[in-house]
Amino acid sequence: MSQCDHIFINMCRDILENGTDTRGEKVRPHWPDGTPAYTIKQFGICNRYDLRKEFPALTLRRTALKSAMDEILWIWQRKSNNVHDLHSHIWDEWADEDGSIGKAYGYQMGVKHVYKEGLFDQTDRVLYDLRHNPFSRRILTNLYVHQDLHEMNLYPCAYSMTFNVTQERGDGKLVLNAVLNQRSNDVLTANNWNVAQYALLLMMIAQVSDMVPGVLVHMIADAHIYDRHVPLIQELISREPYPAPKVWLNPEVHDFYQFTTDDLHVENYQYHEQIRNIPVAI
């Protein structure tokens, strides 16, 4: 059993057995037919994934790793807020007629800020600090910009990454770790998607910073399973997990802005059949 599957199964069981049911309460999300989308939710989930041991791709069903990588590059590398720059259609529900999702995600990563060392956007500031001051405790990003929330078509769910460098005993190799903060997580549709894409981001940034990817800590304030997803989750966590796949990046890439999905290599990824026709709350 992969550790990622083990974490996912235990998290789902905890939510279903010990979570708060929001049925009858005032909720914002709704189903396409207009029915309120209620959840069973758990507060303060903290999951840890050590990328030195395995890549955290779910085997209970397939996670589209190249699409996950494309989305994280859309935000962090291309710094786009337009779905026409994204190869999947995940964000189409929140895009306007021009394809924009407003001042969200990639838009915020591309805004330049003044620092003592010069003018940087958030991506470039992270890369600069890891290169010049890797043991800083101030290497973080934030997409939840209150002054722009009214111009975002969707408030950021995964909104902050905090990077922290440690050192391997023995060889002295620098290890890049990160904490992903998420205010809200739809466990069925998005949990492993988010884990995989930010694990890939950690791997890419570690590689161009001449570091080893270490631990990704995923903090979720509100981890929830929608009412119409409960039987799907129950079926999913009843499956027998496979071993984790081997995932690696093209070692020839040393510039974060040169990565493409062609640089992602996945080997021995065994997985169960996909769950089809998952309803998505809006």
Rank of each mutant, 00 (worst) to 15 (best):
S2L: 01
Q3V: 03
N10V: 02
N18R: 10
G19I: 07
T20C: 03
T20G: 00
D21R: 10
T22A: 13
R23T: 14
K26C: 02
V27M: 05
V27N: 14
P29Y: 12
H30Q: 10
H30K: 11
W31Q: 06
P32K: 09
P36M: 04
P36W: 02
I40H: 01
K41T: 14
K41F: 02
Q42D: 01
F43T: 07
F43I: 13
F43C: 05
G44Y: 11
D50I: 09
E54M: 09
F55P: 07
T59E: 05
L60M: 10
R61C: 14
T63N: 14
A64P: 01
L65R: 02
K66M: 03
K66C: 03
A68S: 15
E71M: 04
W76N: 01
R78S: 03
K79Y: 02
N81D: 04
H84D: 10
D85C: 02
D85V: 00
H89T: 15
I90N: 00
W91M: 05
D96M: 03
D96Y: 02
G102S: 15
K103C: 11
A104G: 11
Y107D: 00
M109E: 07
M109K: 08
V111N: 01
V111S: 01
K112L: 02
F120C: 09
D121M: 04
Q122N: 11
Q122K: 05
T123D: 08
S136N: 09
R137I: 03
R137P: 02
L140Y: 13
N142M: 11
N142T: 02
Y144N: 11
Y144D: 11
V145I: 12
H146M: 08
D148K: 02
L149K: 10
H150W: 12
M152F: 10
L154Y: 04
L154V: 13
P156V: 08
A158L: 06
M161A: 13
F163W: 15
V165T: 15
T166H: 03
Q167H: 03
E168P: 00
G170N: 13
L174Q: 07
V175P: 02
R183H: 07
N185Y: 00
V187G: 04
V187F: 07
L188S: 04
T189C: 10
T189A: 14
A190P: 00
W193N: 10
N194A: 09
V195A: 13
A196Q: 01
M204R: 09
A206H: 04
Q207G: 14
S209E: 06
M211A: 08
M211D: 08
M211C: 13
V212W: 09
L216I: 10
V217N: 14
H218R: 00
I220A: 03
D222A: 05
H224D: 07
D227V: 05
L236T: 04
I237E: 09
Y242R: 05
P243H: 12
P245T: 06
W248T: 15
W248A: 09
P251A: 08
P251G: 04
E252T: 13
V253E: 10
Y257P: 03
Q258I: 00
D262P: 00
Y269M: 06
Y269R: 10
Y271K: 01
E273M: 04
N277Y: 06
N277R: 06
V280F: 14
